[in-house]
Structures are given as structure tokens and as C-alpha cells.
Design a protein around this nucleic acid. Structure first.
Lengths: 240, 240
DNA sequence: CGGTTAGTTGACTTCATTCAATAGAGGTGG
DNA sequence: CCACCTCTATTGAATGAAGTCAACTAACCG
């Protein structure tokens, strides 16, 4: 189950045999969850962090007026709430969008790990910085892209991220989200998402029915989104 | 000049005398900058990171259609581009909104520091996680708040953050931004920002002329924004 | 096969943008 | 000190993107 994390780290940097062994040897605890489970709630103080092994997980907040906003989406291989190790108190809620599995590790064990293997701490720190980079990309999208551009951008991002963990092939993948969920990611109304999707279908850009997504015209979708995968930092970095 | 960082860290956790001494002893290099200087550009690969000592710095991106979006604002005490230590390649541009000073530290020195003082690496990691938490709050705002709510929220945030580093008193502070800049933070047009500001002035919520900002009705502004400072993580955390 | 959830459609509204013109504020050189 | 320039702020009118409301249809599920 830890292979997912190993792969994620090795997509973006290098691991020594020793480091790989150390990660395997950690006392991970396997946890399964169902769709709509809240894995951690606003103001909780978790004592362990979770690696997502399978399934889709979202970070969620609600505006005072009631609107729901998805702040981030996590795919398998992501260290979903590594942040609770250092931030202590949850500033949002972690909600499962599907059933799936986590590998949990106690914060106390992480402290030991990081003291003994500072380079590993840097590799995981780096993952959390990539999360922040994705946040910034979403800020740009919400602030300055139109609805169709935003939708296209999100689809490109998911195709890249899922592809990197072996969950997308031929621009085809599964995302267990309803149109209401999409609207909560994109900061739009569900009605408008419906219209945008219909337009994209009609233009033969995508084929989206239910959870199944097929991108039909990848170059056109990328160009509509103005997508540049740079911010996902899939380049292999020399981390010392 | 490093006092600002020390204070920032001690607002949010604890430092031992030894740790404080180690931070002071680092080979910081003082750098001054002017308004509109680009401190680091998209795709640069800086070899040092910068602590902001004075002035205001923004992270900026442009949409393909040309729109400018400010992704983050940094106040004195913030470790502005600690992220370049681990992400290597810039995924946005760092622009100075005013003249000011940086204290720069080479990435090589940070590696040594973090190997020798794992706890300090965690405290700085934590600062970068707080940056990410602010990103998430902005995502919520851009996605689900109206223009007046967003403006109110940003003013509350700046008042809190500047207050914590001694740059705001009596809900009065300075932010060297034009209305165009405000619009680029809030994902709005400059014209609309102007109208929102006039409305807030007329309602006696704020007094904003040029760089000088005075919040006249703090409770009302907080309530308009639905502001909860939780996400700024000013609580003192036990970090081991 | 009824009941529930998710997706679709149309009419209307609204918040915010765009465009364009005007007014003001600050800085600079003659 | 004033004329001039530029940048910033302000205003109005017209437009447009997206939201809201409400009804309806399709898909799913026990």
C-alpha cells in the first residue's frame, strides 16, 4: 500500500534503497472509508496523518452564506493530511468523495522519522509545497478564468495527476463526482456547470457521463484551459 | 533584522535560547528592493531564500487572457520564498509592492541548518503550511464570497497579520496598493473595487485613502466578511 | 415499481465587467 | 511657482456571464 507514496516521491525526486526501506518499515495502519465519510473535521486535532492509497478525497469549507467550496482534491499517492502533523488544528474538513483506503501513521512516529532522516522530511515537505502550488493555480483559475476555462483546466489537471499514479490512460479516467461536486470545486452553480459540460460535449471536447471521463480532444482542451503542467512539479528535483 | 522571523515563530510556537542563537548566527545577507522589482521570476531557479524584513511583496501570475492575479501577499516576518529551497523552479513571480528589505539565506546553508536542527526545519515547514492555509481561505473567498465580503475579508486578514508583527494599531495600518492591485487580489475589476470601497466608506466601515487604511467599524467588518482568524494559526503549537 | 437522487431546461435576475469619459493627485522640470 | 504629465480614482451607461428559481426528466436502487 505504501508503493503509492514511494512512486509519488520517485516521480518527483530520488529515493535511496535505505530511504525506501525506512518508509516501508514505518508502522502504517490500514484504514478503509466509505463515500461521504468525514476523515477529519474542522477544529479536530488528529494525532496521525493519512496517506491516500485508493479513492478520492476532498478538502471542504462552507461560506457563512452556506455555499460549499472544495479547496483541494486528493488522488491516491497524496499524503492527504500531512499538514495536521504541524498545524495541529484542522482549518477545514476532509471528506471522502468515494470509498477507499488510507495508510495512517502516528505523528509521534513521524517526529522520530524526521529526526533520523532529515532528507525524507524534506521530500515530504516538498509534497506539501506542491499542494500549495496547486492551491495557487486554483486561485488563479477562480480569480481570472471563465467557467469553461476553469472546467477545462480542472480536467487537464486531473488527467495529469491521475495519469502519474497509473489511474488514467488514453486520457480516460474516473472521478466519482456529481455535477454539484464539480460546481463546488469550480466556484460555480450546478446549473452553470451543466451548461458548460453540455457545450464541451457538443464541441466534442470531452465525453463525461457519470463518473467516467474521456477527453476526446486533448490539444484543444489544453489550449482552452491555457494549461501548463509546470505547477505540478513533476520534474525530478535534486533534493539533498 | 532577523527579529521579525523570531517574533513570527514565537507568535506561533516556542524557541529555545539555543535555537534563537542558531537563527541569529546564520549568514543572512541583507538586500534592499524598490517598488515593482521582481524578486524572482516564473521559471527562475533561485539559490537562496528570502525573509521579508520590511515592505510588502506579492506573488503574481497572469491568465492566458492577460488578467493579473495576485496569489498571495507577504508581510514583514514572512519567509517569502522558502519554497524555492525545495521546489527549485519558480511557478509564479515575486513582485515588490513597495520598497523594502530582505534577509537572504543560501539554500546550502538551509540544508545544513535543517540537518543539524530538525525541529527548526519543522517550525519553518509549519510556516509554509500556514501559507497554504491562507491560500485555501482565498480559494473559499474567490469561489463563494461576494465582492464586498471578499474585500472585507482581506482587510480583516491584513489587519490581523500586520497587527501581529507590530505594523497595525487601533485597526489602522498601511498597505501600498492601488485599487488596481486590490482588484488583482480579489479577482474583480478595478471599477468594481472602486464601487465596493465607496460603499464601505459610505457605510462608515472603513476609511481608505491611498495607502492609509483605518477600520472604523471592526465588528461590522468582521461580520460582513464572516471572518474567523482560525486559519492564520496564531495559536501557540507544541512542536517537538 | 415507487421513491430518491442526479441531470436538464427555460425564464428571469443580478452581480460584476467593459468601455469610455472625467476628475483628481502627485511629481518634475523650466 | 506654475504648467505639464502621468498615474490613480471616479462616474455613467451598456453589456454580459453566471446565478436563481422552478419545473421536469432520466437514472438508479432496493
Amino acid at each position: 500500500m505504501i508503493e503509492r507514496l514511494i512512486r509519488n516521491l520517485e516521480e518527483r525526486s530520488y529515493l535511496s534503497d535505505a530511504e525506501r526501506a525506512v518508509l516501508y518499515a514505518l508502522p502504517w495502519v490500514r484504514v478503509t472509508f466509505s463515500a461521504e465519510d468525514e476523515l477529519a473535521r474542522f477544529s479536530d486535532r488528529p494525532n496521525r496523518s493519512n496517506l491516500l492509497v485508493s479513492g478520492l478525497v476532498a478538502r471542504v469549507r462552507h461560506a457563512p452564506s452556506g455555499g460549499r467550496q472544495i479547496l483541494a482534491l486528493h488522488v491516491p499517492g497524496d499524503f492527504v493530511d500531512l499538514q495536521s502533523f504541524l498545524l495541529k488544528e484542522m482549518d477545514h474538513t476532509l471528506t471522502a468523495m468515494s470509498h477507499g483506503e488510507l495508510a495512517a501513521i502516528a505523528h509521534a512516529d513521524l517526529t522520530i522519522l524526521f529526526n533520523e532522516h532529515p532528507r525524507l522530511s524534506r521530500l515530504l515537505w516538498r509534497l506539501s509545497l506542491i499542494d500549495a502550488s496547486i492551491h495557487r493555480e486554483w486561485i488563479l483559475g477562480l480569480g481570472r478564468l471563465t467557467a469553461p476555462e476553469r472546467m477545462a483546466h480542472l480536467l487537464c489537471e486531473l488527467c495529469f495527476r491521475l495519469g502519474k499514479v497509473g489511474l488514467a490512460a488514453d486520457h480516460k479516467f474516473e472521478v466519482p463526482m456529481s455535477q454539484v461536486d464539480w460546481s463546488d470545486v469550480l466556484g460555480l452553480s450546478n446549473v452553470h456547470v451543466n451548461r458548460v459540460l453540455q457545450d464541451m460535449r457538443q464541441k466534442q471536447l470531452i465525453n463525461l457521463r457519470g463518473k467516467h471521463i474521456q477527453i476526446l480532444n486533448w490539444p484543444e482542451l489544453m489550449s482552452l484551459a491555457g494549461f501548463d503542467p509546470h505547477y505540478l512539479h513533476f520534474d525530478k528535483a535534486e533534493i539533498r
